[in-house]
């Protein structure tokens, strides 16, 4: 079944209208987050100094919190507890088995309904934009969560530059396929997942100011196990939406298939918005374990980002569109 959702209330091509609104929303969000998280943390981003040259400098995020007061997880936890099935299904597999992976040089193919398709070197794709540090909660569909200081570029900025046409209603992302560097893709007997790993966002979700194209965390470049060199981060969605090691971005008309939905359609939907009221068929989503904490805590609707994203789903039955 296919559904088509026009960008709510927008009759002009998304490429023509987004930048200013996006910009303003983002300014508002960063200001708010910065104010709560302690101004010093967001200051580099606001000051516009968080450029690529800055990316190698180690930064101390150990005392930082998200805007709800959640402490940032340790770099160790963030880089050793990963779901990246291309490197194996144990949480430690990605950090152990990704040593052969080569995240550079890297190119990203852009295709579909846009004015500027082509194969972009990663540097060229990112160069015109300014990187920002943003502290987001990550809620895995497995009912654990972390708080992570990402570094990245608003996806909206990149998309605007690629000039999608009016018929681009969705964006599809594809993870690289390199069985020779990714042991999880080599298994023949009972393959882990159908490769390549695919994910997608509705155009308004992709243009939402929260959505990041991530290039680093903790002020450093992404490690292989975290999806180097380029991954997605839409923090109000379950972790599996945030496709790693992106090699292709396609602007498409119809809702793209996403890997987990293909694998187990009744358990994993396209939207995958964090929702404590809609349980996974096999476990509850009402609570989560924050990595590093003993007790489970309540899961927040849209992972606590309702103010920024709930309007996109007004009138939708979220139990049906899980």
């Amino acid at each position: 079944m296919l559904i088509r959702v026009k960008n709510a209330g927008l009759d002009v091509p998304s490429s023509e209208i987004t930048p200013e609104e996006t910009y303003l929303n983002r300014r508002r969000f960063i200001a708010a987050a910065g104010a709560i998280a302690g101004g010093h943390l967001m200051a580099p981003a606001l000051g516009g100094k968080a450029g690529r040259a800055y990316a190698q400098g180690a930064q101390d995020f150990s005392d930082a919190t998200d805007e709800l007061g959640g402490e940032v997880n340790t770099y160790e936890d963030i880089t050793t507890y990963n779901n990246f099935y291309e490197f194996g299904t144990d949480k430690r597999d990605p950090s152990r088995n990704s040593g052969d992976f080569k995240p550079a040089p890297w190119t990203v193919e852009v295709n579909g309904h846009c004015a500027k398709p082509g194969t972009y070197a990663l540097e060229d794709l990112l160069a015109p934009h300014t990187e920002e540090d943003r502290i987001y909660r990550l809620r895995c569909v497995e009912a654990w969560s972390m708080v992570i200081p990402w570094r990245g570029i608003p996806l909206a900025d990149v998309i605007s530059r690629l000039e999608p046409t009016g018929s681009a209603s969705y964006v599809q992302f594809k993870t690289v396929v390199r069985p020779e560097e990714m042991p999880g893709q080599r298994r023949r007997l009972i393959p882990i997942l159908p490769w390549p790993y695919l994910e997608g966002l509705r155009m308004d979700e992709a243009m939402n100011p929260l959505t990041l194209l991530v290039t680093g965390l903790y002020g450093r470049s992404l490690l292989n196990q975290n999806g180097a060199p380029l991954r997605l981060m839409a923090p109000w969605k379950y972790g599996f939406k945030n496709v790693k090691s992106i090699v292709e971005i396609s602007f498409v008309e119809e809702m793209p298939r996403n890997t987990w939905n293909v694998q187990t359609p009744h358990e994993y939907g396209f939207y995958a918005n964090v929702n404590p009221e809609v349980d996974h068929p096999r476990w509850s989503q009402a609570r989560e374990r924050r990595i590093g904490k003993l007790l489970r805590q309540p899961t927040l609707m849209f992972n606590g980002y309702g103010d920024q994203v709930a309007h996109m789903y007004a009138g939708m039955d979220l139990a049906r569109w899980y």
């Binding site: 160790e76 050793t80 507890y81 374990r289």
Partner: peptide, 10 residues
């Protein structure tokens, strides 16, 4: 080795 990792309860 690593104190049962990031999610020892799991």
């Amino acid at each position: 080795e690593d104190g049962l990792g990031a999610n020892p309860i799991e």
